[in-house]
Amino acid sequence: MKFVFGLIVGVGAGLAASYVLANRDEEEGALGSLQVNVKSAIASAKAAVVQREKELWTEFHERVPAPDQTTIA
């Protein structure tokens, strides 16, 4: 009985793995949609980083006065 149960679980795991790892178009399949979601998340994160950097530089320039050019020399 344990052998039959193990065989069924093994076949199910094999089918699930073959479904996920199958070579499909980028827009099809679980792996392709996961790649699209990850790429989209990375692009959103990069855009958020750029926006936050701009905000921090603006805040920095508001808080720290520009150096007097006559005192640097």
Rank of each mutant, 00 (worst) to 15 (best):
Leu34Tyr: 07
Glu62His: 14
Ala73Leu: 12
Asp25Phe: 01
Pro65Arg: 13
Trp57Asn: 07
Gln69Asp: 11
Pro65Val: 07
Thr58Cys: 00
Gly12Tyr: 04
Glu28Trp: 11
Ser18Trp: 10
Ile8Asn: 01
Ala48Cys: 00
Leu7Ile: 01
Glu62Ala: 15
Gln35Tyr: 04
Val64Tyr: 08
Glu62Thr: 15
Gln69Lys: 12
Arg24Met: 09
Ala48Gln: 12
Glu53Cys: 05
Glu28Ala: 10
Leu34Val: 06
Gln69Cys: 02
Ser33Phe: 01
Lys54Leu: 06
Pro67Asp: 05
Glu27Ile: 08
Val49Trp: 01
Ala17Lys: 02
Gly14His: 00
Val20Leu: 12
Glu28Pro: 00
Glu26Val: 13
Ile42Phe: 05
Phe3Tyr: 11
Ala13Met: 12
Glu62Pro: 00
Val50Tyr: 02
Lys39Pro: 00
Ala30His: 08
Glu27Pro: 00
Phe3Asn: 07
Leu7Gly: 02
Glu26Asp: 11
Ala41Glu: 05
Thr71Met: 09
Lys54Gly: 13
Val11Trp: 04
Ser44Trp: 01
Val4Cys: 05
Trp57Asp: 08
Phe3Val: 13
Met1Tyr: 05
Ser33Gly: 04
Gln69Glu: 13
Gly10Ser: 14
Ala41His: 00
Val20Cys: 03
Ile8His: 01
Val9Asn: 06
Lys54Trp: 02
Pro67Gln: 09
His61Phe: 13
Ala41Lys: 08
Asn23Tyr: 04
Asn23Asp: 14
Met1Lys: 14
Leu34Lys: 04
Ala22Gly: 01
Leu56Asp: 03
